[in-house]
Amino acid sequence: MKKLLIILLMACCVWQAWDYTHPQPVDRYVVKVTAAEGDTLWHLVGDTMQREGDRRDVREVIFYTKKISNLQGDLQVGDVVLIPIEASKK
């Protein structure tokens, strides 16, 4: 039983090493969204990420969204929000 667990652990380590050294190609692009009544940055970014297949942490994407969209303060109706997306190529 101990040998089986060690072999399984080693296989997982090899798999992780392979994934790390052979990253999947990604598409990088920006999605333009206009804020509507009741929208929050968290929901706009989160929904867009989910729809586009971006698997990064939503907080990281919100940080860059604020930066490239030049957003300061609360989100207002009509604000143009630029959301940077990184999605795996299919």
Rank of each mutant, 00 (worst) to 15 (best):
I7S: 11
L8V: 13
L9T: 14
L9R: 02
L9V: 14
L9K: 00
L9S: 13
L9P: 01
M10Q: 06
A11D: 00
A11V: 15
A11C: 06
A11T: 14
A11Y: 06
A11W: 04
C12P: 01
C12F: 14
C13V: 15
C13A: 15
C13I: 15
C13M: 15
V14L: 12
V14P: 01
V14K: 06
W15D: 08
W15G: 00
W15R: 00
W15C: 04
Q16D: 11
Q16Y: 14
A17M: 11
W18S: 07
W18M: 06
W18R: 01
D19C: 05
Y20H: 10
Y20E: 02
T21H: 08
T21F: 14
T21K: 01
T21C: 10
H22N: 14
P23S: 08
P23W: 00
P23E: 02
Q24D: 13
Q24N: 10
Q24C: 03
P25V: 11
P25W: 04
V26K: 12
V26S: 00
D27Y: 09
D27R: 12
D27Q: 10
D27V: 11
D27W: 09
D27L: 12
R28Y: 14
R28M: 10
R28K: 14
Y29H: 08
V30G: 01
V30F: 10
V31C: 07
V31Q: 05
K32C: 01
V33H: 03
V33A: 08
V33T: 03
V33C: 03
T34M: 10
A35L: 03
A35Y: 05
A35W: 08
A35K: 00
A36Q: 14
A36M: 10
A36R: 11
A36T: 09
A36W: 05
A36N: 11
E37C: 06
G38K: 07
G38V: 06
D39G: 06
D39Y: 03
T40N: 04
T40Y: 03
L41A: 04
L41G: 04
W42T: 11
W42D: 13
